[in-house]
Design a protein around this nucleic acid. Sequence first.
DNA 1: CCTATAGCCTGACGGC
DNA 2: TGCCGTCAGGCTATAG
Length: 263
Amino acid sequence: MPELPDVEVFKRYLDATGLHKTISTVQAPESRVLKGVTEKRLKTVLKGTELSSTKRHGKHLLVSIKNADHLLALHFGMTGFLKYYKDPDDDPGHVRLRLDFDNGYHLAFDCQRMLGAVKLITDEDSFLKDKGLGPDALDERLDFDTFKDRITGKKGAVKSTLMNQKFIAGIGNVYSDEILFQARIDPNRKVDTLSEDELKTVFQKIRTVLETAINHQADPSKFPKTYITGHRKSGEPCPGCKGTVKKETIGGRSSYYCPSCQQ
DNA sequence: CCTATAGCCTGACGGC
DNA sequence: TGCCGTCAGGCTATAG
């Protein structure tokens, strides 16, 4: 599930709930989501201190820890989310990391399919470098010239390029479809066949689509009627023309687009 | 270096 | 009802 807009919503949620509260207990019962760290180590680093700030890069959420020389790095995989609550009966069903604060509240990282990850990292720059992540899709410094430079030499379907985290970080299956729908470009198009104008359109739509999604809490049911995300089903009416939405596997992922609007 | 594919995980859903 | 195959908005390892 979580792509850049979802993770941005999680970030704001954590900012509004889990910062500046003393952590009294730490639980991380599922070692399969702990990458390069143990429950014991997490307890050592987190107990008695506070989360102090957050930063998002692509689909990764990096959480600073007060007076610690490490950051907590969360990745949500396909099914991850955060929940802040008081009553333990409200525990979500697949808690992989739980922080208990001294105000009686809990912050849970829930990840049903365990494709997510919990790490401790020393600093943001080396983390991004190790992962080979491209610039965040909403980074102000990402201008069209940089975008164009990074895309030069790439082959394959434009949709796959948009989803490549080493190219630009944050875009996944759903939002690559939405960006290309708004740009009216067929997701199958080879990226090296796009004209300058088409590249410009894609570049602009990356920003507007992701920002629009964030402004609607990444909830597709609140998206504009002109968006295709709420119509991810074969045969659904296209929000842009009289045609119907087509489902097709592109780059191994289920893709939805309108063959009539997107040429 | 690049791209394309299989596989990792669990659970929900639809067809038989 | 129960079983089974398919699929799901992630990434990574491997082959070509």
